[in-house]
C-alpha cells in the first residue's frame, strides 16, 4: 500500500448525498421538523483503495455506510462499480458490495453452522455446485486464518475474533469490489483486534477489493487506510491522504480529535485548551463554530470544502475559513 491515490476507475462514487430523519410520531404528537443527518457528502474510493471514515458518535458515518449499502433512503447519487441503487436489483448489487459490522454474533444465525452461513451468498446467486461451494467455503476459511474444520461449527463455539474472521470471509465469498467495514474491530479485545487488522492487510495483498473502513479510532484508520475523511455533524470537514490528514491535520476539529486520543507512549496530557467549549452555538454557522478556538464573525456561515494541498499531494480538502 502506498499513499498515492490509485489510478483507474472509481469503485465508489458518492455525489452530493444528503439524508434526513423525521420524527414518525402520530397525529398531534408528530414533529414535522426533519433533522438532517448527512449534509451534501461527496467522496470517491478508487480501485484497491482503503478509505477511512472517522468521526464521533452521531456524526453520520454509519448513516453514510448504510446509505451506500442501500439500507436507508437518501438524496443524491451513489454508484458502486458503475451501478446505481434502484436501477439494478438488490441482488445484483450485493455481488459488488458487502459489509462487515461491529458485532459478529448478531450478524450470524446462531442455528446454522459457519459453513452454511458462508455458503449462503453463493447459493443465493446460484454460483457453483454444492461440492464446489463446500470447497470454496473451506478455502475461504483458510484465507481468513481459520481451520477448514470450522465449517461444521456453530457461532457460539467461536471466540469474538474468530467470528469476525468468519464475517470477513462471508463478505469476501462473492469477491465484491467494495467492502464496508463499520467499526469492525471496535468490539474486539486489543490483542485480537490487531490480528484482524493484520488479516485485512494480508487479504488486501492477495485480492483486489476496496474498503470503506468506518471507525471512531483515528489511530487505527491511519494505520490501515490510504485516504481518510473526517466527519463532523453530517459533513466532511477534512479529507486527504492518510499521511496528510493524520500528520498534518488542518481543520481544528481534526486537531481536537487527534489531541484527545490518549497515547500510551507520551507524557503529554493532550491539549486541554482545545477541549473547552468556547461560545454559544449560532444558527447557520459553521458546524464547529461553538467549539472552535479560532472562530470569528466570518464563521457564522457554512464554509465550503476547499483544496488546501500544499505539500505536493493531489488534494487535501478542508472545510474552514481560517486557513
Amino acid at each position: 500500500m502506498d499513499n498515492t491515490k490509485p489510478a483507474g476507475e472509481d469503485i465508489l462514487r458518492v455525489e452530493h448525498v444528503s439524508n434526513y430523519y423525521s420524527d414518525n410520531g402520530l397525529g398531534i404528537l408528530r414533529n414535522r421538523k426533519r433533522s438532517q443527518v448527512l449534509q451534501d457528502v461527496s467522496l470517491t474510493i478508487g480501485k484497491d483503495e482503503f478509505f477511512g471514515l472517522v468521526g464521533e458518535s452521531g456524526c453520520g458515518k454509519s448513516t453514510l455506510g448504510n446509505a451506500i449499502l442501500g439500507l436507508i433512503p437518501y438524496e443524491g447519487k451513489i454508484t458502486v462499480a458503475g451501478l446505481e441503487h434502484g436501477r439494478v436489483s438488490r441482488k445484483e448489487f450485493t455481488r459488488h458490495i458487502q459489509a462487515v459490522f461491529q458485532d459478529p454474533l448478531s450478524a450470524m444465525n446462531p442455528r446454522r453452522t459457519i459453513g452454511d452461513t458462508m455458503k449462503e451468498p453463493l447459493m443465493a446467486h446460484g454460483i457453483g455446485t454444492p461440492k464446489e461451494q463446500e470447497a470454496a467455503v473451506r478455502a475461504m476459511l483458510e484465507t481468513v486464518g481459520l481451520d477448514a474444520s470450522y465449517a461444521d461449527r456453530y457461532p457460539r463455539e467461536l471466540s469474538g475474533g474468530q467470528r469476525q474472521r468468519v464475517c470477513i470471509g462471508a463478505a469476501l465469498m462473492l469477491e465484491p469490489e467494495l467492502i464496508i467495514a463499520d467499526e469492525a474491530i471496535s468490539a474486539l479485545d486489543v490483542s485480537v483486534g490487531s490480528q484482524i487488522l493484520n488479516l485485512f492487510r494480508t487479504i488486501d495483498v492477495e485480492r483486489d477489493f476496496s474498503m470503506l473502513f468506518i471507525s471512531h479510532n483515528l489511530n487505527v484508520v491511519y494505520y490501515l487506510c490510504d485516504r481518510i475523511a473526517v466527519m463532523y455533524k453530517g459533513s466532511i470537514v477534512e479529507m486527504g491522504t492518510a499521511d496528510a490528514v493524520y500528520n498534518d491535520p488542518m481543520h481544528p476539529y481534526t486537531r481536537l480529535l487527534l489531541s484527545a486520543i490518549p497515547d500510551y507512549a507520551s507524557e503529554d496530557d493532550g491539549d486541554r485548551a482545545l477541549l473547552e467549549r468556547f461560545r454559544p452555538p449560532v444558527e447557520g454557522a459553521c458546524a464547529f463554530y461553538h467549539r472552535c478556538p479560532h472562530a470569528t464573525d466570518k464563521c457564522k456561515k457554512v464554509p465550503e470544502l476547499r483544496n488546501k494541498a500544499y505539500r505536493g499531494e493531489e488534494e487535501h480538502l478542508v472545510r474552514c475559513f481560517y486557513l
Binding site: 486489543v190 490483542s191 483486534g193 490487531s194 487488522l197 489511530n219 487505527v220 491511519y222 494505520y223 490501515l224 492518510a242 499521511d243 493524520y246 500528520n247 500510551y264 507512549a265
Partner: peptide, 9 residues
C-alpha cells in the same frame, strides 16, 4: 505492540 502507532503504518 498490538496498538497501532504512528510509525507502524
Amino acid at each position: 505492540r498490538s496498538i497501532p502507532t504512528r510509525d507502524q503504518k
